[in-house]
């Protein structure tokens, strides 16, 4: 490269430091370089229903997306707000039951039950979690792990909402096509919405709370308020997923509070790459289908993904996404010799 070019690049770097992201507009090559992975992800997700044959595997797409939404909410809470919530099942179950109750007791169509379940469920979950927001680390993790168990036991013990049988006879989506595109669309909206949220200046407050809550308090900011907001966002996402699940299976029951919904998203996040937001989705795209393949072997699938989880925690704790990103960024400086 000529000195001129090198010099230009050096100036560019300086600008990049100040305004990360803007520099991409300087050339089509860089623009496409930056947008390509995003484009592949969006196009790939949107094309999935066409590429995958068979009713069964099309159903799996929806399940993948619901898990991905859940994993996204876990990733957001854990790595951008610093609240490690092991209560994915709590969100799914609450959303699922609310959608089920609204639909079967009040016969509200799914178009309304799903957003209602997201908002109401988010509010309910936030209310439950509100008193434990000052808790840290292990304590918060344990209490969120306990909530879904508690809800399941309460429903069982009081025999409410259909008890162990659950609520049956819930409307399904009008067609499989609508179902799949709805969850895929929601997933994409949440993904880019959260990405946008955490990079805005206001979103920085969440990260700041995670980094160092004392300094945020000393800055005169009410951290409980912000934490509650974050929990509301995350739980509303989870509840929306739960509501979709209820309408897909036309049933809501205690198994929606099962630990599966707490553990699999975490496994997906660890595998995909913690704190990358896209990583959890990639993790789900890998884990859920594989565990569907193993469904015939019963509980072996749990053994399988738990083993993967342990393996990734031990040997590749930064996840696939970070690895992929590093590899991809090596292309940027690729010149022919």
């Amino acid at each position: 490269m000529s000195t001129q070019k090198l010099r230009k690049e050096r100036i560019d770097r300086g600008i990049k430091v100040r305004s990360d992201g803007l520099y991409a507009l300087m050339s089509w090559r860089e623009l496409s370089y930056l947008t390509l992975p995003r484009f592949i992800l969006i196009a790939g997700l949107l094309a999935l229903p066409f590429l995958i044959p068979g009713m069964y595997w099309q159903r799996v797409i929806s399940i993948v997306c619901i898990y991905a939404i859940l994993a996204l909410s876990f990733d957001f809470l854990a790595h951008y707000v610093g609240l490690v919530s092991l209560g994915g099942a709590f969100f799914i179950g609450t959303g699922g039951y609310i959608a089920g109750i609204l639909n079967s007791y009040f016969s509200i169509p799914p178009v309304f039950t799903i957003p209602l379940a997201a908002i109401l469920g988010g509010a309910v979950c936030t209310l439950f979690i509100l008193p434990c927001l000052p808790l840290k680390g292990v304590y918060f993790a344990i209490i969120t792990l306990m909530y879904p168990l508690f809800m399941a036991r309460v429903i069982e013990a009081f025999d409410i909402f259909g008890g162990t049988d659950g609520i049956v006879g819930i409307d399904s989506f009008s067609s499989a096509f609508v179902e799949q595109y709805f969850v895929i669309g929601m997933l994409l909206i949440f993904l880019f919405g959260i990405r946008r949220l955490v990079t805005t200046d206001r979103g920085l407050i969440f990260t700041a709370i995670m980094d160092n809550d004392q300094a945020v308090k000393a800055s005169g900011i009410n951290i409980t308020q912000y934490k509650a907001l974050a929990v509301f966002i995350a739980s509303a996402m989870g509840c929306l997923g739960g509501a979709c699940l209820t309408h897909i299976y036309m049933w809501s029951g205690i198994s929606q509070f099962a630990l599966d919904f707490s553990i699999l998203p975490i496994a997906a996040t660890v595998i995909g790459g913690a704190g990358t937001l896209v990583g959890p989705i990639i993790g789900c795209l890998i884990l859920v289908p594989v565990s569907e393949f193993l469904r015939d072997f019963g509980t072996l699938r749990i053994v399988f993904y738990a083993s993967i989880l342990v393996g990734f925690i031990l040997f590749r704790s930064d996840g696939i996404m970070v690895f992929g990103q590093r590899k991809y960024e090596q292309f940027e400086r690729w010149t022919k010799i």
Binding site: A78, V84, G137, I263, F297, T299, V303, A306, L314, S317
Partner: peptide
């Protein structure tokens, strides 16, 4: 958190492995 997740995953492996 990793301790919790890892040990819980080990527990899952053992228990569900036994069940399998």
């Amino acid at each position: 958190i990793s301790e919790i997740i890892a040990s819980y995953a080990i527990g899952l492996i053992i228990l569900e492995g036994l069940r399998f």
